[in-house]
Design a protein around this nucleic acid. Structure first.
Length: 265
DNA sequence: ATGGTAGTAGTACTA
């Protein structure tokens, strides 16, 4: 049975716990990467998630940001925080290492900075964070292991990844600098899991709460699973759990799932 | 339509 690895920006784990539990039972991901948990580690509602058979590792902070990895596989190793800037206190990165029947598997849950407004320090912070991630990823590629960089990248890679691309011109999610930085992962050898399995347009992972964006299908694709060559070799399928956006009290993002031909150790 | 909606934590902030 393939291993299901998912990413979902849940926009507040406390407000979303019922939806999260429902989706875990329904989708049965082996590893689920969460972003925007908006919780400190001590207040993360781990009990009901552990009751479903998941190990839980979090990297949270008060009020906003925060990432987590839920896994049916035991964690061999956990690393919190992205290297390259000791002054950066924002909780946006957690890495888990697991044992599979094919050896080590590394999975990162990342929440890339939004970067708006672009005329503030937020935009250079986004670009420098992307450079740090690229340096980190380049180091990891030398291991020649299956590695999945899963998360909310806050980048619309191509015009085809937005219902109304013209509305995003100038936005930090669609600025040429952001898109170029995202392309560097492809140049390094990473594969966009969704694009590797479909050329279909109109696949989105985020619809704003405002202005009836969901009802108008005014979405964008900004949640991505980027696969190292060793992970891409084993990619068998991807899917987007679009139906969760229509649930009561939805996140503004939906889960994206990649299936890899890997088994438990 | 320089608004609109939502989460966290308890009044701005982030997106």
């Amino acid at each position: 049975m393939p291993m299901k690895i998912a990413t979902w920006n849940i926009n507040g784990v406390k407000a979303r716990i019922d939806n999260l539990l429902h989706w875990l039972e329904e989708a049965q991901p082996d590893i689920a990467c969460l972003q925007e948990i908006k919780s400190v580690d001590g207040l993360f509602p781990r009990g009901p998630i552990e009751a479903l058979g998941y190990y839980v590792e979090t990297h949270g902070q008060k009020g906003f940001n925060g990432v987590a990895i839920l896994s049916k596989l035991r964690f061999d190793e956990v690393n919190r925080g992205l290297s390259g800037d000791d002054e950066d206190a924002q909780a946006r990165f957690i890495e888990g290492v697991f044992s599979t029947d094919k050896g080590a598997l590394r999975v990162v849950s990342l929440y890339l900075p939004n970067g708006n407004p672009v005329d503030t320090e937020k935009f250079p912070y986004k670009l420098s964070w992307m450079e740090r991630l690229e340096r980190w990823a380049q180091d990891r590629l030398a291991l020649e292991e299956p590695l999945v960089l899963a998360g909310d990248y806050n980048v619309i890679p191509e015009p085809e990844d937005a219902k109304n691309p013209e509305a995003w011109v100038g936005d930090a999610l669609f600025r040429p600098e952001s898109r170029a930085a995202f392309r560097k992962f492809s140049h390094l050898g990473f594969t966009d899991a969704l694009r590797a399995t479909t050329q279909e347009d109109g696949i989105y992972t985020f619809w704003d709460y405002q202005a009836g964006a969901w009802q108008k299908n005014n979405g964008i694709r900004i949640d991505h699973l980027m696969l190292s060559p060793e992970a891409a070799d084993r990619l068998s399928a991807t899917s987007v759990a679009k139906h969760t956006r229509a649930w009561e009290k939805p996140s503004d993002h939906v889960p994206v799932i990649a299936e890899l031909s890997l088994g438990a150790a």
